[in-house]
Nucleic acid binder design. Structure first.
Lengths: 193, 193
DNA sequence: CCGCACACTTAATGTATCTTAAGAAATTAC
DNA sequence: GTAATTTCTTAAGATACATTAAGTGTGCGG
């Protein structure tokens, strides 16, 4: 699929887009290739862009005082990713975003997003739906973290994101679940009762 | 403050609203008084409304398989609350919403919200900002849950939400933090080093 | 194709947090 | 205003999960 077509499909799942609007959107996106391990956003800098993942796998993570990485999200094709806190407020990012596999992304700067909102008011609706879905996802994760032991969270993760499980190492998954790789290994060994 | 004025103020922090739009908004809101312990939304039913809290304190919580309540959020004056998953998708709610103190809320049904989006496209922007802020909040909580021990999460909670700490019992706060009231009590006893 | 870094596993020991139980304090209901 | 209910605390014992350390596999850069 043509990369632009991939984003437009993603957008058109939620709003309709005229031919001239398609051109406008395409003109505001910047394609970036991101090599495995390459950093797209570094904690401490301001997140100026939101990225649409066309191919490959990205992750965002928080580095805590002990220096440990805590994975906040994974993003594969058709996902949008940024440090939403930094992108919203202009404060320094808490998260680092890098590639777990070679990736291709389309980046939209905050200025261009605001331009889109101005020139194409329905894009506000699209972005509202994007944010609302992200809110649903994060709230669902909070519920799981509060109410389930690690073993059950792991099962739910495999069920909800089978496309991640195949491509992401156990170490990364453990970090996402908030447990150590050693403990995840011991969970996996257990007969799944 | 006139209740309608309170909501309009909240909305006008993010978008400008004409006189006729103000009337429209007011006409679509329904005032509800909620007595302490009264249930506004019951898990299993569909969340048809989003509620603006004018006075009092509400909470939403998830009841897990063991029957324990896990608090997802508190809402005091000027907060909006619903089960965003159920409200978005029309699926049965996972959360129960009830009042921890006598409260007054203004409820906006999903139909009326869609009507607002149609008649007042800038309302899409307001709601986008609402959802984006909620996303930021939930992501920040996930980062804290992943990277900090309970004692530090409690400190951050007190710092971030001093208005909650005064009005909400230790038991509720413990549930929000994902720990038992007994353990919270032991944390509070420790000299704050 | 070799070597090295890194992922995954296993197991012993350690610790944060839970469970249970009971009493004291505070709030609520009649 | 007093009984009844709920909250908060304390403490002992239990458990989920972390830490450390060592060994085995696996991918990948040169």
């Amino acid at each position: 699929m043509q990369p632009a077509a991939q984003i437009l499909d993603n957008i058109q799942k939620h709003i309709s887009v005229s031919a001239s609007e398609k051109k406008l959107i395409e003109s505001l996106l910047v394609q970036q290739k991101v090599a495995k391990k390459e950093v797209l956003l570094e904690a401490g800098k301001v997140a100026t862009d939101i990225h649409f993942v066309s191919q490959g796998v990205l992750r965002s993570y928080f580095t805590d005082l002990e220096g440990d990485q805590n994975i906040v999200m994974f993003a594969v094709n058709d996902w949008w990713i940024t440090d939403i806190f930094s992108f919203s407020t202009g404060n320094p990012a808490q998260l680092t975003i890098d590639a777990l596999e070679d990736a291709v992304v389309y980046s939209l700067s905050k200025e261009n997003l605001e331009l889109l909102f101005l020139k194409m008011p329905t894009f506000e609706r699209f972005f509202r739906i994007l944010m609302q879905n992200a809110y649903v996802r994060e709230q669902s994760r909070i519920i799981q973290n509060l109410s389930m032991p690690a073993e059950e969270r792991y099962r739910q993760f495999l069920k909800k994101y089978p496309q991640f499980a195949e491509r992401i190492t156990q170490k990364q998954i453990a970090s996402y679940l908030g447990i150590t790789p050693e403990f995840l290994s011991s969970l996996r060994k257990k007969p799944n009762s």
